[in-house]
Structure formats: C-alpha cells, structure tokens
C-alpha cells in the first residue's frame, strides 16, 4: 500500500523560524521545535527543517535545534541547507535527524551523495532539486534558486538516484510562492522515471493542489510551508480532503 505523506517545511535561520508563522497559542512561534510539535499534533507525517542561515556558524546552530527536536518530536525529521560534507551529514543525523537533504553541494561534488549513502545508507539521503522551466525543459538551479547550472533536471535526477539518493525533493522555482499549485508536469515526469520516493514542493495554495500533486503528479510526499504557517490550511484538512479523493494517507 502506498501512503502519501503530508510534510510541512520550516525555513530556519540562526536557529529561528524565518518567515510568516502565525500560530497563536505557541509560547514561542519562532522556535522551530515548538512549531514542529504543533504540526506533529496536527497530524504531520514528517517535518523538514531547511537551514537558510548565511553564516558559517550555521551547522552548530542547526545541530542544537535538531538535538532539541529529538528530545520531544517522535516523527521523522529531515534537515537540509548547507550540508557540504559527509561530516556535516553525520553530525546532523547523530543529533537526531533521520534524513539530510543535499542540494548545491551535491551538484558541485556529486560524489558527496555516494559518500553519505555509502556510509549511512541511501534511506537518509534526500537529493533536493530546484527546477526552473527553460526553452528546452527544466534546468537545475543552485544556491537557493539563484544560480543556473545549465543542467537538465531529468538527467540530474537519474544521476542522483544512481549515486545513491534514497528520495528526491523536487521544488518548482516557477511555482514556489505563487499559490498556483505544484508543477504537475515536472512532478509526473520525475515520478514516472525514478523508482525512489519523490516529494513535490513549490506552489501549493489550495486543498485541490495537494490532491493534484498526489493523483496527477504521482508524488509520494506533498510539501508545503506558507499555507500551513499562515494557518490558511490545516494538515487535518489536507488529509481529510485527500482521503475523500481516494488518496491513502495516515489519518490526522
């Protein structure tokens, strides 16, 4: 039985949730651990922390956040942002994360994916791909979507899986922040060509978009940030909506 996961993503900078969180009743709405717990209580299947700290101290700060999360959060935790070496990945996993995402560093040094997979297992390596439409298909972007690479997304995901990626997190840069829904063409192209789980990301603005991601995109995980942070949609609502449309989810 294939079960689709609903995954809230928190952008974290210097140990604090970065943007647009409107949870009333949280003692500290800027604390990623407090917010992750709230999402857990709402029925989240997994939580992603994405470190967007620009400074070089980012890793030690994130290790602290992950260690605090591990004390209280008993659902899967994925952590990304600035994972450049095998040691970075190890320290995050040792602190209590289940998976790390590798993005920019995996493109400049693809062997990093193999190193982490070889030492810690494919199941903990998520390769994050930022994709933007071009005249010839989809192009891979790095550095948080700022730099183009000239690389073809579909070729890169094939390579990433060969190198040992256990999962793909595919973000449409065209849709990110637009609330127009996932790029379903991109998502389905990828889900139909790889045999590892795929998390779709970027563009969710409505309940229908979640269902499209699962049914038309074929995604195994549906990631969203702002609609959850701003309390526009609750995780419980998403799951009830998906269940009503025949998508198997763990009930909230």
């Amino acid at each position: 039985m294939r079960t689709v996961r609903v995954i809230p993503c928190l952008d974290v900078a210097e140990g604090r949730v970065k943007k647009g969180v409107q949870f009333l009743g949280l003692v500290d709405a800027g604390d990623p651990v407090a917010l992750a717990l709230r999402y857990d209580a709402e029925g989240a299947d997994e939580v992603v922390f994405l470190d967007i700290t620009a400074s070089s101290e980012r890793r030690s700060t994130m290790v602290d956040v992950v260690a605090r999360a591990a004390d209280v959060l008993f659902i899967p935790l994925t952590v990304g942002g600035g994972i450049r070496t095998l040691e970075d990945a190890k320290s995050i996993l040792r602190a209590g994360a289940d998976k790390v995402t590798v993005n920019t560093a995996g493109i400049s040094r693809p062997v990093l994916i193999s190193e982490i997979a070889g030492e810690l297992g494919s199941q903990c390596v998520v390769v994050a791909v930022d994709a933007r439409r071009s005249s010839w298909g989809w192009e891979v972007y790095t550095h948080g979507g700022r730099n183009s690479t000239g690389m073809d997304v579909l070729e890169w995901v094939d390579r990433a899986v060969e190198l040992g990626a256990g999962e793909l997190l595919v973000t449409s840069m065209d849709r990110d922040g637009t609330k127009e829904g996932f790029d379903l063409e991109l998502t389905s192209e990828i889900t139909s060509r790889v045999d590892v789980p795929v998390i779709a990301s970027g563009g969710v603005g409505s309940l229908a978009h979640f269902a499209q991601g699962a049914l038309e995109g074929g995604a195994d995980g549906l990631l969203a940030a702002s609609v959850f942070h701003r309390k526009e949609i609750s995780i419980g609502e998403v799951k009830a909506y998906l269940l009503a449309r025949g998508v198997t989810v763990r009930p909230a």
Partner: peptide, 11 residues
C-alpha cells in the same frame, strides 16, 4: 511493483 525504499507510514 513498489518503490524502494518503503519510506512512509503504513497500517
């Protein structure tokens, strides 16, 4: 005919 790993919740 399933994706591997099984990386999900199951009943």
């Amino acid at each position: 005919e399933v994706k591997l790993p099984q990386m999900q919740w199951n009943q």
